[in-house]
């Protein structure tokens, strides 16, 4: 009988202990972030979509070798190589002379890709392309707020994207997502 009463008291006490925790946290400062007005500060290490890394001249470091497209588990990359430029008549003459001498003609095709098509709808952000790039021309952006109205908004041409970032051409809203702004 006494034991039962004591049990009831201890049972009730367990509820009071729980309420004390609630009271402590009721007065504690807010831990969440009011999102549209404030953004979280921990997205620096977040992996967003892919981007091409620019070299010193602003052109992409990429050498169009296609290792990334080969390594990609979900086939979301397509590298379009540049066509060799049409030789001028003088060059053609030089080429013919070189051929007559038995020299191999130098490949003057620029190595950077004409197009680097990236389908973000397929990408699972595993980083295999990045690890297999021989020149380190790929990187992840930290863009966590990418949004679009249609499927096509997530098909990027990364060469164009790099140009846009360098400010060479007009900004394209869908192609250059804004990164987190702390205050609005």
């Amino acid at each position: 009988m006494i034991k039962e009463a004591l049990n009831t008291v201890s049972d009730l006490w367990s509820l009071m202990v729980g309420l004390r925790v609630t009271k402590d946290y009721f007065r504690a400062p807010q831990v969440t972030v009011r999102y549209p007005w404030k953004a979280v500060s921990n997205i620096a290490t977040y992996k967003g979509h892919l981007e091409l890394v620019g070299g010193k001249t602003g052109k992409p470091k990429c050498i169009s070798c296609g290792m990334c497209a080969l390594a990609c588990p979900s086939n979301c990359l397509t590298v379009v190589k540049r066509k060799p430029p049409k030789p001028t008549p003088e060059e053609e003459q030089a080429l013919a002379e070189a051929k007559a001498k038995g020299e191999k003609p130098k490949d003057k095709t620029p190595k950077d890709p004409e197009k680097f098509i990236y389908d973000f709808t397929l990408c699972s952000l595993c980083g295999t392309c990045m690890e297999n790039c021989p020149v380190g021309a790929l990187d992840f952006t930290g863009s966590a707020y990418l949004a679009g109205y249609s499927r096509e908004d997530f098909h990027f041409d990364l060469v164009q994207l790099l140009k846009n970032q360098a400010g060479l051409e007009g900004m394209d809203a869908s192609a250059a997502p804004e990164t987190g702004q702390s205050e609005a």
């Binding site: 921990n42 977040y46 699972s124 952000l125 595993c126 690890e131």
Partner: peptide, 29 residues
């Protein structure tokens, strides 16, 4: 609240917060 702290820690090496693809054959990424 606690889980968020772990996700923040794991986000640093892995780059993601839920579906990690971090280990590689022969080590980690």
């Amino acid at each position: 609240d606690d889980r968020e702290k772990i996700l923040d820690i794991l986000q640093d090496p892995t780059g993601s917060r839920l579906t990690y693809s971090y280990y590689r054959i022969g080590g980690v990424a």
